[in-house]
């Protein structure tokens, strides 16, 4: 236990177990966005809070080793581009931007509602990564400011 960064060993152990449950819950909310309350935005915030949980419990250096921050930026930008891409495919297939071009399926099934689950997943990835990255960037900014004073 050389590094004193982050919180106590109790918090770290609890986080190690609970953070995966948080991720699973967020992914569940995203994937069932067209069936139950919630959706891409709420599930994305849950995933961002899961990342934030690890960040607070383990500290900055651990996050740098655990996550590839550049990859997260790419994921965020890619999901935004794919969102617009689905919209443009909608123009090509049916003539309306973001129109629902896939088959509707049966009501209350997991694979139904055409493009809505796809858009939910993209928004979930985007919101989850972006909110975490905002906090991450602001925390870097904070340390710089402290160093100057």
């Amino acid at each position: 236990m050389k590094s004193q960064e982050g919180m106590t060993i109790i918090v770290k152990t609890v986080t190690r177990i609970s953070v995966w449950l948080i991720f699973v819950y967020g992914i569940y909310i995203i994937f069932h966005g067209h069936l139950t309350p919630g959706g891409g935005f709420g599930g994305g915030v849950i995933i961002a809070l899961g990342f934030l949980n690890v960040f607070l419990a383990y500290g900055k250096e651990y996050i740098k080793k655990w996550l590839n921050i550049g990859l997260l930026h790419d994921l965020e930008a890619t999901s935004a581009i794919l969102f617009v891409g689905i919209g443009i495919i909608g123009i090509a297939m049916t003539g309306g931007f973001l129109a629902n071009f896939l088959s509707k399926g049966t009501l209350f099934r997991l694979f139904s509602a055409g493009t809505i689950p796809l858009l939910n997943i993209l928004i979930g990835a985007k919101v989850g990564v972006a909110l975490f990255l905002v906090v991450w960037s602001l925390s870097l900014f904070h340390i710089d400011e402290g160093g100057e004073q």
Partner: peptide, 8 residues
Amino acid sequence: TGSANLVS
């Protein structure tokens, strides 16, 4: 839309 959740 085929979506059970009308908000979505």
